[in-house]
Simulated scan of single mutants.
Amino acid sequence: MKQGYAIAIAGAAAMLASPALAGERWLVYTGGEKPGRIFVVVDETYLDAVPFTEKTYKLETITVLENAKAPDWVSSNMIIDCDRNTLEEKLIQVSPRGGKLTTAPDQPAKQPTNAVGEALIAFACDMGPKNSEQRLAARKTDLTDRGWMYMGPVTTSDVTDLAWNSMWTDGKRPASTPRSAAELEREMESLNARRQKALAEAQAIAGEVVEADKRDQQRTAAIMAETEANGAIAKARKRREPAAVVRALEAWVTHGEAELVGSWGPPTSFEDRAGTRFLRYYKTGVMLGPDPSQGCGAGNMYVPDPNSKNGGMMCVAGGPPRSETPIECTASFELRGGMIVDYATKGTEVTYSWGGNGCAQLFGK
């Protein structure tokens, strides 16, 4: 940007400053060849980070066009992704040379294809991360070497006047159908309403994302708590139950009621209690004691051999019958939501020198 242009624009901007829908405008690009020159201004007021993104900023632009066959000016919202070096254009408003504002379709994110796109990305990625104090300092700094100049609080109408009165003084402003101040104000109010609606929708979506994140965190916390609780239950179960029972029944944990009933048949009894269901299976049997005749034949038994000097044993007739102990056991499966979460056994406690108990005999493996 030439120094003379910068001084002229700064002076004109100071005279045109208007509070009506005026933003903190920056000139970020001016160039092209007559009669196709353009004048690009951005509004710092709406330069902000896009929620839930990394190094992505929203930038509002106004582009004034010199060519009589082109619109008077075009405004849009740019979504600038500094990491990907892309710009996405939304809420595009087109102001013909006379007549009402029209709209144009949103444009997808893409790499810059000209100097204007490069200038917009450079400005957004430099100014976007700055806080209010740093931006205030930037306004007071001469940045014309970068092609930027702070213009102050000027309106869209002021911007178009500045382009023709300060930059394109060697050309003739194309004729346009005049519009009253009231019409222009209504159009700008409509533009501002669209902008505010888009902002509200973005904030609503952001709020939904926040709530979804909270729900995900709550679900994660609940799953972690349940996992921890299930781990404690499993440890307690393995301490409580005989090893043979654990080997036989542990695989049923996390399986459904239908699977268990399909394999074991209907339960002996069941109970529903506070959202928890219990299925109980009862079995009886007989536990045999040590076999006194083992190795001697039925009806015999081992006794010390009186003729043995080395403590030998001998087999004699009249051995006692093998003991038989009635046993019983109930295996109780606890289900929540139709899924087995725990089990417990309770039954006859019979212990021999070789180990074992009633539940291990009836349900174990």
Rank of each mutant, 00 (worst) to 15 (best):
I62K: 06
E118L: 13
M78E: 13
A70M: 11
A119F: 02
G99T: 08
M78W: 08
P105R: 02
T63R: 12
A115F: 03
D126Q: 13
A68K: 03
M127I: 12
I62H: 06
A104T: 03
G98K: 02
S76I: 00
F123N: 06
L87Q: 01
F123H: 08
D83Q: 13
A124R: 01
F123C: 07
E66L: 15
L101T: 03
T103D: 10
E66D: 10
D72L: 15
D81I: 08
T113N: 12
I121H: 00
R84F: 11
P112H: 03
Q111I: 14
T86L: 13
L59N: 07
V74Y: 03
T102S: 11
G99P: 00
P96Y: 06
A119S: 07
T63N: 08
T61R: 08
D81P: 00
D72I: 01
I121Y: 01
M127N: 05
V116H: 02
K110D: 07
D106K: 01
K58I: 13
D83T: 11
K58P: 01
K90T: 10
K100G: 14
M127P: 04
K69A: 13
E89C: 07
G117S: 06
I62E: 09
A124S: 09
P112Y: 05
P71E: 15
S95G: 05
A109Q: 04
K100Q: 10
P129K: 05
R97T: 06
L87D: 00
D81A: 08
A70Y: 09
T61G: 02
M127W: 10
V64P: 00
K55S: 12
K69G: 10
